[in-house]
Design a protein around this nucleic acid. Structure first.
Length: 431
RNA sequence: GGUCCCGUCGUCUAGUGGCCUAGGAUAUCGGGCUCUCAUCCCGGCGACAGGGGUUCGAAUCCCCUCGGGACCGCCA
């Protein structure tokens, strides 16, 4: 029983609610979550809101929304400021034992002058720090609130966190925290400091790097499984494999395949990955996900969406999605399925005699009982044969007239899914 | 500046002393397929930061240099 408890993995993600969740934070959260799930452990979400000035409720909501979207569910949730009794008790203990002292109304932790310490990091090996490099530091502000470096230790110890998996930027804080563990008489967790995600200029991610907010990627039409897959591959790998499902990730993830050098977030590859996931995802689910994108800022109304019918939309989506990188792209091309005015990419120029040809095509198509790809194809070829014309003579203009663009899936599939009424109406505008 | 971390194609990475004239993916370029294309298939370009060691042998181990990053708050 005791051994089982010792081996039980418990990790936490501890963001400060001072802004949205960016991709770097999300990656840290993901690695913690994956580690917990892989080892059947516990994943804690702990909001580090000890900075009263900068913490906001809106940020907490943003972070929670982003985590939920990514599917990173937590087993425990805490806010640090709700635990100040515990912090006070721990700090008072240090004062009582002379390990901390008061100065200018703040409480300071006394760092031993001599000696050195070794931070045993799961990813980087042993890192040595000399005590003389450290200075006494504040654990409690003069306003009575506690400082991150202190509460993080008290909370991690109190919650029984076994593995502290966090960004590289915290490595340098670790010796101070270890000193606190020792002063508090608590056992040390294992540490793993993850390499950072950098902007394209190799500097730490910040506002000036454009889009870094996780939720912003949702808004732009990326799938949560894409983000999870992509973020996992930033720093972690499994041979040559690039595409992973969430379940595979849980099964395969471990700290020994995590690298130690910083990575740059490359959107081109993210788009490619999203296209891969978009292509293979369940069409019914994609339909639900793409709906708000189709209805947002376009001429397509809720009524049109209902009239279109789910079956037809799923069919259209399945045909159209292959060439789309995002839900936004998909929504854009899906407008061809609705009775809206199409913005044509290029002006249509009819060749000599083409008007008659199109008229014949319209007549044939109008007579079709079934508007399947096969039926459309034979009808079309039949009509063309009468005029001794080739498909390529009219394909381009038919495509442009019925879909508004020059590229897309095979013409017969395309016409079939756009549907007879729309195809004929749009072709008639040519004549 | 001090301390610490990191350094394989533009980017993400495989590689843990011989399987490496360095593999995959993406990006890019070219070709094929097609009514068309952003899909798909085939192919090209492209990296072990530099220098010293150790070793029969080094991308892999050690040292130095250079480069990049992080931290140096009563922020987290």
């Amino acid at each position: 029983m005791h051994l089982r408890r010792m081996r039980m993995v418990k990790v936490r993600f501890a963001p400060s609610p001072t802004g949205y969740l960016h991709v770097g934070g999300a990656r840290t959260a993901l690695f913690n979550w994956l580690y917990a799930r892989h080892h059947c452990g516990t994943f804690v979400l702990r909001i580090e809101d000890t900075d009263k000035e900068r913490s906001t409720q809106a940020s907490i909501e943003q972070i929670v929304a982003a985590m939920s979207w990514l599917g990173l569910d937590w087993d425990e949730y805490h806010c640090q400021t709700e635990r100040s009794d515990l912090h006070l008790q721990a700090a008072q203990g240090l004062i009582d034992r002379g390990l901390a002292y008061e100065h200018d109304g703040a409480w300071w932790f006394r760092v031993p002058v001599d000696g050195e310490m070794v931070v045993r990091d799961l990813l980087r090996g042993d890192v040595t720090f000399k005590h003389e490099q450290l200075k006494d530091f504040v654990i409690r502000r003069s306003d009575g609130s506690f400082v991150y470096n202190f509460v993080v230790v008290v909370d991690d110890a109190d919650m029984g966190i076994t593995h502290v998996i966090r960004g590289d930027d915290h490595l340098i804080n670790t010796p101070r925290q270890i000193l606190l563990y020792e002063a508090l008489g608590r056992p040390l967790p294992l540490f793993a400091h993850l390499p950072m995600i950098l902007g394209t200029d190799r500097a730490r991610l910040s506002k000036r790097h454009g889009v870094t907010s996780v939720l912003e990627y949702r808004r732009r039409g990326f799938l949560p499984e894409t983000m999870v897959n992509f973020l996992a591959r930033l720093g972690w790998s499994h041979g040559d494999q690039e595409i992973f499902t969430r379940e595979e990730l849980i099964g395969l993830f471990d700290l020994d395949s995590v690298g130690s050098s910083a990575a740059i977030f490359d959107e081109a590859k993210l788009k490619w990955l999203n296209q891969c996931h978009l292509k293979t995802a369940d069409p019914d689910r994609i339909l639900a996900l793409v709906k708000p994108f189709v209805l947002d800022g376009r001429e397509v109304t809720e009524q049109m969406w209902r009239d279109a019918g789910e079956e037809r939309l799923v069919l259209g989506l399945s045909l159209l999605r292959d060439r789309c990188a995002t839900l936004a792209d998909l929504a854009e091309v899906m407008t061809i399925l609705f009775p809206v005015r199409l913005a044509h990419e290029k002006e249509i120029r009819l060749a000599e005699g083409e008007r008659e040809l199109i008229t014949a095509v319209v007549d044939t198509l109008a007579g079709l009982a079934l508007f399947t790809p096969d039926a459309v194809e034979s009808a079309l070829r039949e009509a063309l044969a009468k005029y001794g014309a080739k498909l390529k003579d009219v394909a381009k203009n038919i495509r442009m007239a019925t879909t508004g663009r020059g590229v897309g899936p095979g013409l017969f599939d395309l016409l079939s899914v756009v549907g007879r009424d729309l195809v004929i109406a749009r072709l008639k505008s040519l004549i």
